[in-house]
Design a protein around this nucleic acid. Sequence first.
RNA 1: GGCGCGAUAGCAAAGCGGUUAUGCACUGGAUUGCAAAUCCACGUAGGCCGGUUCGACUCCGGCUCGCGCCUCCA
Length: 465
Amino acid sequence: MSIQLYNTLSQKKEVFTPINPDEVTMYVCGPTVYNFVHIGNARPVVIFDTLFRLLQRHYPSVKYARNITDVDDKINAAAKANGETIRELSERYALAYHEDMGQLNTLPPTLEPRATDNIDAMIEQIQALIDHGHAYESEGHVLFQVSTDKEYGKLSHRKLDEMIAGASERVDEASYKKEPADFVLWKPSTDDLPGWDSPWGRGRPGWHIECSAMINKHLAKTIDIHGGGQDLIFPHHENEIAQGTCCHNEGEEQFVRYWMHNGYLNIDGEKMSKSLGNFFTVRELLELWPGEVIRYALLTAHYRKPLDWTKDLLASAKASLDRLYGALRDAPLDLDDSVEHPMLSELESHLCDDLSTPQVLAVLHALAGEINKADGNAKVQLQKVLRKAGDFVGLLNQDADAWFKWQPAGQQGGLSDGDIDALIAERAQAKKDKNFARADQIRAELKDQGIILEDSPEGTRWTRD
RNA sequence: GGCGCGAUAGCAAAGCGGUUAUGCACUGGAUUGCAAAUCCACGUAGGCCGGUUCGACUCCGGCUCGCGCCUCCA
């Protein structure tokens, strides 16, 4: 089954053929760690985690790198305000990032290079750009001269002169630039700012250089897949291409073969962004919802489409997962990789079609329907299939009972599991005594606390609403 | 101004030139001491106007509306 991916470069779906099928390479732009990440940051992480899982099933080895940007003017400012080093600040938020992404059941990338550990590679690449006549030094800065790159604009599908014309009011016409579109590779640091020694004096890297330098250093000259949010297409990824190709000999090698970009997350129909301030951090959402609900919600829309983030979306994701976990009641937790089923191939074919996750979720529900109609060994087998299907997209990996008993961190302090079990025992006795009034009273009391009882021949089960 | 994306039933969201998406919500039935869960049944949706076609939600053109990017942003 071949994998098809939409390539921003060609603006169409292409059959994915890696340079080296024995080792697929993928790079995804990670966070700038100066704060807790927001839900918009989580979308690409979940999307590319889903792709990572798919690739791992198709190829023996997948090298997936996701960087941590730990030097940046926002980090510098935040650290200075706290009176700490950028390392201390970024360390703290990198840890929080790992915790948050772990809650979304994302696998750790194969490697996670940090900008500050790779300054040498950046300096080396900048020097190569200068040597090849694509960059120049000016007033302590090193700039990439965009007009020297004939291919510039091929990712964002813009022409350089149009960009300059359209953006004339916005582009920073700093004195040290030869041409307005030139962008910074290296900039000087004053004594109170983090800096590294370089051939151009003590300074720090521009934003774009870290990714192309770390890709060359840790992955390869040419990698298979590079991913990120749509807002990175221009200028960030366009500039990465310029750096990543121009630092080598002319026309030598492609930088990235497949560029993938996820759509935005909207809040009330408006783009969520740090600058607009209309964002939720993953951390605050995790106070109210299980991480799996957030992951499911992110997978309900196709990754290239915008996704409107609302409370209804989360409530609906929760309800959908309730149905899926309902089919996994009493199912063993361990994965049985050997299990086979036509619906697994169907599901895989949807994933292979440019990560068509909405269709994947439909297959999960079809499986749940089959399970609910089956019994005995057939049911057990189908439950194993559903577990495996869920694993394909990083869902349904917890115990169903635990799922139904989950409660928000912010709301703990109500009835404990023990309190509930005691009331259920009392109700069982009342039922035995045909005291249905008392039994119903207990049901009603628990319902007021958000506890739903389900009687069955095997006993009474409860779930938190 | 340049470039791009979208418009599907109450809500969310897919595929597909002719035949069920799916989930949530709603309604009826089965089941249940009462419930819940589950099962069964139930929706001529496809912005507007043309065109192609035996047939269009699906292809083509135009229009309207909404959104994004054009050097802070996932």
